[in-house]
Structures are given as C-alpha cells and as structure tokens.
C-alpha cells in the first residue's frame, strides 16, 4: 500500500481552543457533537478523526459546506495549521514529526498550494509573483525568471508578465496563483477552493485548465471545494465532510449511486444522475422472462452514453465484465435515471 500512496492520513484531529490536545485523547469527549463539545469545553473541533489515502497522479477532492472543516483539513496536510492529533504520512514520511527546517524543505520542493483569495503580492509584477517560490528557495535570478516564463506560458498568461495583480481579472489572478504553485515543480498540488471567488463561466474555464494541466503534468492534486459539480468534474475520488467528520469517501458514481446517509443523499439529489451513474448502479438481476441475447455493455459505461444503445435494442442489454453477466438494463431503468426520478435504493 505504501508504495501506492503519496499521502496517507490517519485519525487526524484539529481542535481549536484552550487545552485542545485533551479532546482527541478522551473517548467521552470524542463522542460529543461539535456543539456539545463547545458547551462542555469551549473548544471547537474543526477536523475529527479523518483518514484517507491519496494515490499518485490522483485528483482527490474534499467536499463539504462551509464550516465542515475542509479548509482546515488541507492546511493540516501542509501544517499551515498544526494538527492536534493523528498522522499525516507524505511519501512515507510522517510530516507531523518534521522539524521546522525539514518542513520548509518539504514546502519548498514537495508540495505547494493554490488559495481561494489568490494570496498574490500586489506590489510585485506577475512574473515576480510566479517566481516568488523559487526566490524563496534561493534560485538565481536567471533560473527563476526562465522557469517563471515557462510556467506563465503553461497557464496561458503570456503577455501579462509585467502586469500587476490588480490589473488582472479574478480568473487571471488565479492563473498567476496556479503558476506560482506549479513553478516550484512540486509532487503534490493543494487547492483550497481556488475557484469559489470566480464567476461561473470563468470557473468552468479554470476547471478545464486544471483538467488539462493534470493531463499534461500529471501531478497529484488535493482539491477542496464546496461545489458538488466541480467535485464530480475533477475528482477521481471524493471525500465528503460534515461538521469535521468524514461522511463518505468514494468515486462520484459511488456517492450518487450509494449515498452513505441522508446528508449525502440530500447533497447529490440535484445531480444529473445520467451523466454520473454507470450501468453498475442501474442494472437489475435478469428475470426469468428476459431474453439474454441483446447487446453487451461494460458496467462502467455512464448511463448517458448507454441511452442510445439501450433504447435502440428491443431486448434487455446485458452488462458484462470479463464474460461474466452482471445484470441487465432495459429502457425502464434508463428512463428512470434520465428523467431523474430517484431510484429505489
């Protein structure tokens, strides 16, 4: 397992307040709800007992409403916020034990972060903002400017090198933020709601940009968002958080197809199910009267893509993997999903 995970998080806690470190140690306090905890101890538990693994090259999305602890979680991963308890193993190294100097090394070379409010330096030109991380780790001026130019080109900001941040639109400013994070060539990129401050259209553009970059540079990404459609678009896997706890972790179709509780169900209610669910989630057991000589499709085919085949066939479509029949799909199941009537679980 260790070879296949970049980040491994175990039982991570972050509690704010006086004597916060006592909370994760007490089983009684751990069991309390957030509100009860505040009333009992005055402490706020932002992240509670979270565990997950991120594989190399994966886009891992953490999703939740505001106050769910997701931003704190991502800050714990880089120790911008000091976790209260638990373990964060990064490439085999427990970074919670890293000293100040080692932590700086990691930040300078291993991971970088893109922020919701960009965090650009207004008195520096775009190119100097992008080169900032390189400057911090002591690269020479020619080195860092060359690298900065490359990255600026990569994010599509050619021609704006000498502009100042406040002369750019929000979307372009976030491209600068993205370029700054990429410039240091990290192993992992952390995104803290990077596009929430942008207009919907620009947000879409930027999501495409991230997808493109992910394809081109293949970085591991941990992406925080409160927007489910964004999560579904970008995420290989999604972790849903509520009140500091993880509620469910899985791929998009797992969340939509098998919500862990009412909270998740509520969340995914408005998702256009046909474009998320795969046949695995809509197929049924073959009935004795089914004619089993229809066309075959794989279980991971998205419903939307199967519509034409299923509706065109005059008999049930077989869902087959490796020659094994998993189930069948007919027009009835497909239409239930497409017309967005919630399927009985």
């Amino acid at each position: 397992m260790t070879t296949e995970t970049v980040i491994s998080v175990r039982d991570l806690w972050k509690v704010f307040g006086h004597k916060a470190e006592l909370v994760p140690r007490s089983d009684e306090l751990k069991a309390l709800s957030r509100r009860e905890l505040i009333e009992r101890t005055g402490c706020t538990a932002a992240v509670r007992e979270v565990s997950f693994d991120v594989a190399p090259g994966e886009v891992f999305v953490v999703m939740g409403l505001s106050g769910s602890g997701k931003s704190t979680l991502v800050r714990c991963l880089t120790r911008l916020v000091e976790p209260t308890a638990g373990q964060v193993v990064f490439e085999g190294e427990d970074i919670l034990g890293a000293g100040k100097r080692r932590l700086r090394e990691l930040r300078r070379h291993k991971f970088s972060m893109v922020f919701q409010n960009f965090g650009l330096l207004p008195y520096r030109q775009v190119i100097d903002n992008v080169a900032y991380g390189l400057e911090i780790r002591g690269a020479t001026k020619t080195q860092r400017l060359r690298r900065a130019r490359e990255v600026i080109e990569l994010v599509g900001l050619e021609g704006y090198e000498h502009s100042f941040p406040d002369q750019l639109s929000g979307g372009m400013q976030q491209r600068v933020g993205l370029a700054r994070a990429l410039a240091v060539d990290p192993d992992v990129l952390y995104f803290d709601e990077p596009f929430s401050a942008l207009d919907p259209l620009i947000r879409r553009d930027m999501q495409n940009e991230v997808i493109r970059l992910h394809r081109e540079v293949g970085k591991t990404m941990v992406f925080i968002t409160h927007d489910l459609s964004e999560a579904l678009r970008l995420g290989d896997r999604i972790l849903i958080m509520r009140d500091g706890r993880q509620v469910q972790c899985g791929t998009g179709d797992e969340l939509v197809g098998a919500p862990a509780d009412d909270y998740v169900r509520d969340f995914v209610r408005d998702v256009p199910r046909a474009s998320v669910l795969t046949l695995r989630w809509v197929m049924r057991e073959p009935r004795p009267d089914d004619v089993l000589d229809g066309p075959e499709l794989g279980p991971d085919v998205i419903v939307r893509d199967a519509v034409r085949t299923v509706l065109a066939a005059d008999r049930p479509v077989k869902v087959v993997r490796d020659g094994t029949l998993l189930g069948v799909v007919t027009a009835e199941e497909i239409l239930t999903v497409v017309t967005d009537v919630e399927a009985a679980a």
């Binding site: 880089t78 922020f115 965090g119 900032y132 933020g177 700054r180």
Partner: peptide, 15 residues
C-alpha cells in the same frame, strides 16, 4: 496584512 498573502508565502516554505 491579508491572511492569504501570508499563508501563500508560508506554504512556499519561506523563513
């Protein structure tokens, strides 16, 4: 000073 600018700098490993 805006928190975000400070955080961004910290996240880059500034002393």
């Amino acid at each position: 000073v805006p928190r975000s600018a400070v955080e961004a700098t910290e996240s880059l490993g500034a002393t």
